[in-house]
Simulated assay, not measured.
Amino acid sequence: MKAIVYNTPGLPIQDAQSLFEHDLPKPAPGARDLLVEVKAIAVNPVDTKIRASRSGDGPQVLGWDAVGIVREVGAQVSLFQPGDEVFYAGAIDRPGTYSEFHLVDERIVGHKPHTLDDASAAALPLTSITAWELLFDRLGVQENGGDGQRLLIIGAGGGVGSILLQLARKLTHLTVIGTASRPETQAWVAELGAHHVIDHSASIALQLEQLKLNPVDYVISLTHTDAYLAQIVDVLRPQGKLALIDDPAHLDIVPFKRKSLSVHWELMFTRSLYQTEDMIKQHQLLERVSALVDEGVIKTTVGEHYGSITADNLKRAHAVIEGGKAKGKIVLEGF
């Protein structure tokens, strides 16, 4: 089968060997696996981070978002059957989705929304899981809850922010404040439902005070958390909560003590990495997201469609993400 791979981590994306086409054997499903024929994928920051750091025996396949058709199922599979259209974000400790065929555990897979084409659906799984777990599992916000409370999302214009805004607006009563620094991302954040949009390149506290929204109950930080940490402490209400997804070089939470603030770190791969007892929750939440899309409650967060799944198009996508200029999700479709 065709796959887009790399051998040497850390190469600049312009290097011919940073990503290249390669033939690999078609895999066979394990007991709870689906063998999926991949139709569309999305590119995420985790793709670029793994390419920069992970080495292994043989070619490495990136990719943690896919839409496809189930072609074979393992002996213990009960949730899907051949022919089903599915979407999912995969597992970080298994080969990725930059390949014609891919194995994935059924417990982290959902049925693709009927109302979306393959590329539009591919934008949703990883960010939907991350956003859902941030809001409902890590921060403990209740659906239809949050009356009188405020959520600040730092870096709201990216992939996770784009779906998080919608979930917070449609499924809770929180007042949602999103940050973005460029006119195009500010417009995107407003379009996706933020009650208020502020600029994280200026004083966050001052802007919240001008809006009469300081302090806030929750902060979800999606980028450069260490750079904003002092401001986060400043604007959080005593006993408030911070959730983050990025990888700060340093994260000194000693200043959190005075306000009894709590910190919650989200990694959507935790359940699959540790085969947790509640691993099937990712299947359940993807099924819920699929239904919400089909009901018109939330929409896809595609930013740009880069064409077919080739090494050159993936390099282009990696370059945009590494440059911090992505708006929404970058998707590719077809081998």
Rank of each mutant, 00 (worst) to 15 (best):
L116E: 14
V189M: 06
G193I: 13
T172Y: 09
V104Q: 04
T127R: 10
G145S: 08
Q142P: 02
V197S: 02
L139A: 12
V86A: 07
L171S: 00
G193L: 13
Y98W: 10
K112R: 14
L171T: 02
D117P: 05
G193E: 06
T175A: 03
R169C: 03
V189F: 07
G110P: 00
H200G: 01
A194G: 10
G110W: 01
V104F: 00
K170A: 07
H111I: 06
I108Y: 01
D93G: 08
S99Q: 15
S99R: 15
Q81R: 15
T130H: 02
I108M: 10
A168G: 03
Y88T: 13
L174T: 02
V77M: 13
H102N: 13
S162E: 00
L116R: 12
E143C: 02
P82W: 06
D93Q: 13
S120H: 15
V176G: 13
I177D: 02
L151F: 08
I108Q: 02
D118E: 10
P125K: 00
T97S: 15
G159V: 04
A156Q: 07
L192E: 00
I204Y: 07
S203P: 06
T179R: 05
F87M: 05
F136S: 05
D118V: 09
G148Q: 14
H111G: 02
P95E: 03
G145L: 07
S201Q: 15
L165G: 12
V176I: 12
V176Q: 14
L103C: 13
G155T: 07
H111N: 00
G158E: 11
G158N: 11
L152S: 09
E100N: 11
L174Y: 06
S201P: 00
G140C: 09
L134P: 00
K112N: 04
A190G: 15
E100F: 06
E85I: 05
L134S: 11
A123S: 15
L139S: 11
A89E: 09
L167K: 02
H195E: 14
H111D: 01
G161R: 07
A187R: 14
I108K: 02
R150F: 08
S78R: 14
H195F: 12
L116W: 14
W132R: 04
Q186E: 12
V109S: 09
G193V: 08
A205F: 04
V189G: 09
D93L: 12
G145H: 05
K170E: 02
G140L: 00
G159Q: 05
V197G: 01
Q142C: 01
T179E: 03
G145K: 11
L151P: 05
L134K: 02
L152A: 10
H196L: 12
L192Q: 14
F136G: 11
V176C: 15
I177E: 06
